[in-house]
Design a protein around this nucleic acid. Structure first.
Lengths: 218, 218
DNA sequence: TGGAACTTTTAGACTAAACTAAATCTCTCT
DNA sequence: AGAGAGATTTAGTTTAGTCTAAAAGTTCCA
């Protein structure tokens, strides 16, 4: 079992590591708002447990094992965020801090049942993909609604960052993540889209279309 | 903000304290599976913060302030337990340990929204009352179904401890906490009850009646 | 009423995870 | 090449919460 702190470091590593190159001690310290010396200590400990490849002065990268743990925490984080937004009606600014706490709750079964309860969502409300139990992230094919053309279909996966009010608008219209959308018509003049969702015909302004994320199947 | 450990001690105090008499250091140690010396240390700290009345060698009791904090943790615990059983379909043995973790999540708003989401339940699935936001516990008038007589009514609040399978039976029959029950008839011969729930007529064996908790209004 | 048995507290030590300050390493630029 | 800047590590300290061992207090009964 890993401590909360260890989990935070692994998650930070995951978010900071682009492709296969390694991450500097300073950048981790900066990301986690800690002193570099504290980071060094923890990296040694994580290296000891084979979660990271750490070489003095040379940077750090996640091992396979560490990456899997990181992905499982991210899975929990995103499932809880989905729960908070979808079921408890939270806005966005708020969910991150709470999910940051919830992601450390220890129980395999809890997270599997939560997943089922939420309908096995593939994306969280920000449109970020939710890794599966084994840490696999499905290759996603996400587009903004504005990028679709007539007769294309997609599934609503989220909205762009910082557009909380769009989410509440959707909520008011009874539109949820996972709903199917078909583009019936695009009005060239003002960029308005006429779409069909749940057998209802709806009109979306250009601005909405620029912020609504869909998963498309080509 | 209180630490997880502080919260555990306050909760223990609440559970151990019968009426107004004080609790011994040893009994707390025993309850929390810790050494008495550790308990003494923490009690001093809690006394410093005015959560408890502590006198060397004389026992400890919760202050008004400490009791309120304890009740708020118990509120969280019971709401989460309700969530786990009602929404995530957990059995009983499992929920306590998970709720023990969830009860320490810090967010007023989370717990209020959870309360709303669950329909402001007054009892958790064990039939224990859920304190309100201000720490008030409604005086309860709980009885077992077997104690009711013809034409009496009640609201299902839970089942007795250790009868998880009854909960799943109720679930299968589509009966939920909060449903109204009216006793239509009691068969003297075998103690069977004929009741009405949700406009449906149902027959409950004596054993069921001995384990089903109701809130009655006389 | 005095001492054995039990309870409780004190004193001192340990661990995890943070910190500060100082030492060491690496990199780059002239 | 080497000197300075910046990154990183080391060494030593701190805090919360636990522990063990020993000292001190309380209770109760012969």
């Amino acid at each position: 079992m890993n401590s909360q702190s260890e989990e935070d470091y692994l998650k930070a590593l995951y978010h900071l590591q682009t492709e296969s190159n390694s991450v500097s001690t300073n950048s981790i310290a900066n990301y986690l708002k800690m002193k570099p010396s504290s980071v060094t200590d923890m990296l040694k400990k994580l290296a000891e447990k084979n979660y990271v490849n750490y070489q003095k002065y040379k940077g750090t990268s996640l091992s396979k094992k560490g990456k899997l743990v990181a992905l499982q925490i991210i899975r929990k984080h995103r499932l809880w965020e989905t729960f908070l937004v979808e079921k408890l009606d939270f806005g966005w600014g708020q969910v991150h801090l709470i999910a940051e706490q919830l992601e450390h709750i220890k129980s395999e079964e809890l997270i599997e049942k939560l997943d089922v309860f939420l309908g096995n969502p593939k994306y969280d409300p920000h449109g970020d993909p939710i890794p599966n139990k084994k840490g696999r992230i499905e290759k996603m094919n996400q587009k903004l609604l504005v990028e679709l053309h007539q007769n294309q279909k997609g599934i609503i996966t989220g909205v762009k960052r910082g557009t909380a009010s769009l989410l509440s608008y959707l909520d008011k219209e009874n539109i949820k993540l996972g709903d199917s959308v078909k583009v019936l018509e695009v009005i060239e003049f003002d960029g308005t889209f006429i779409v069909e969702i749940n057998k209802r015909k709806l009109t979306f302004s250009e601005k909405i279309c620029q912020n609504l994320l869909l998963e498309t199947y080509d």
